[in-house]
Simulated scan of single mutants.
Amino acid sequence: MSEDFSNYWTAVMYFKHPTNGSYHRVPVINNAALAPNTKGGITVYYTPYDFTTDNLRNQPIRAFPPGFRMTVGSPATNTLDQAKGHIGLRYNCLTTTINRGPEMVDFPDRPCPGGIFAVHHFPACWDGKNLDSPDHQSHMFNTIKNDGFTNAPACPASHPVRMPQVTYETVWDTTKFNSLWPSGTPNPFVWSFEGTSGYGTHADYMFGWKGDSLQRAMNKSECFYDGCGSITKQVMTEANKCTVPDMVGEETDGWLEKLPGMAM
Rank of each mutant, 00 (worst) to 15 (best):
F177Q: 02
M218S: 12
N130P: 05
W255R: 15
G249F: 11
K16N: 12
C125W: 03
G21H: 08
C125D: 00
S22L: 10
G227W: 05
Y168K: 01
R90T: 15
P134R: 04
D226K: 10
A35H: 06
L89K: 06
G200F: 06
L131Q: 06
T38L: 06
Y168Q: 05
K220V: 13
G184F: 07
D54S: 14
A263I: 12
K176S: 13
A239V: 06
G261N: 10
Q82I: 03
P123C: 01
G40K: 06
K16I: 03
T243P: 05
F141H: 15
S2N: 13
A152Y: 06
F141I: 06
V26W: 07
G73M: 03
G261W: 08
F141R: 13
P123T: 03
F189V: 09
M264P: 13
W126Q: 02
G198A: 05
G211N: 12
Y205G: 01
D127C: 06
W9M: 10
V44I: 13
I116K: 09
F122P: 00
F15Y: 14
G40C: 07
V119E: 14
Y23I: 07
E238N: 09
H202C: 01
W191A: 12
Q137L: 04
R57N: 15
Y8I: 11
P48I: 01
H17Y: 02
V248D: 07
G227A: 04
N187L: 02
T53M: 03
T53G: 09
T79D: 00
A263H: 14
P48A: 07
H24F: 01
N55T: 09
D109R: 04
D226F: 11
R216Y: 01
Q234A: 15
P164F: 04
G249L: 13
W126H: 09
S197P: 02
F68E: 11
T43A: 11
T232R: 10
M218K: 03
I116A: 03
A83F: 07
S179V: 12
V72F: 01
Y49K: 04
E257S: 14
L80Y: 15
H202Q: 03
H202T: 00
F15H: 08
D253Y: 09
W255F: 15
N37A: 15
T71Q: 10
Q137E: 05
W172C: 01
V248Q: 13
P164R: 02
P123S: 10
M206D: 02
F117E: 02
K84T: 07
T232C: 01
D246S: 14
N240E: 15
S221K: 10
I87H: 10
P18N: 06
F117C: 00
T174F: 07
P113V: 10
N37T: 13
